[in-house]
């Protein structure tokens, strides 16, 4: 856990520079449907941390829009996106990685943010300050955090 976090932080700090295993946002390779075959870090995702990211407002905050029965201990699930129950049976790892990192590559026009996009925004801001930000922005989720969420979602299988 600790090691993973440090790797992630290092990756963010040196964003743009070639860190061994981290795939930079601009270097991500998609298939024709928007799926991303290659891990963004080469390090297996941690589903427990992924679960935390799902319910944490300052992180993925996935339940802001999606309902997940397995996360019903966390208050207030949104209704904006589809329910994620069984999502691990309907999508494979590459597809889930593609949707989380760059949802709009899979679903054109989706309201879902691209969690790994760092530039090309209209009026990019500095977080939630309302002030201008400078691209490239830090991604909404770091590469390993995306891998962790993918790992968690893969645990949500149909019974």
């Amino acid at each position: 856990m600790r090691l993973t976090k440090i790797t992630t932080v290092a990756a963010v700090l040196t964003a743009g520079a070639a860190v061994a295993e981290i795939v930079a946002p601009g270097d991500v390779v998609f298939d024709e449907y928007g799926a991303i075959e290659k891990s963004l870090t080469g390090v297996a995702g941690d589903p427990a941390n992924g679960e935390k990211i799902m319910v944490t407002k300052s992180k993925g905050n996935c339940i802001a829009c999606h309902e997940v029965t397995a996360l019903d201990y966390a208050p207030f699930h949104g209704e904006v996106g589809p329910i994620l129950d069984g999502v691990g049976s309907r999508w494979n790892e590459a597809e889930l990685r593609g949707i989380i990192a760059f949802a709009k590559m899979t679903y054109e026009g989706s309201m879902m943010p691209n969690f790994y996009q760092v530039e090309g925004f209209i009026r990019p801001g500095d977080g939630f300050t309302g002030k201008a930000g400078t691209e490239p922005l830090p991604p909404l989720l770091a590469a390993q955090e995306i891998e962790d969420v993918v790992a968690y979602l893969l645990t949500l299988e149909d019974e």
Binding site: I122, P124, D126, T129, G130
Partner: peptide, 8 residues
């Protein structure tokens, strides 16, 4: 607009 992480 701020809540979209934009420059307002």
């Amino acid at each position: 607009v701020r809540d979209t992480r934009a420059e307002t």
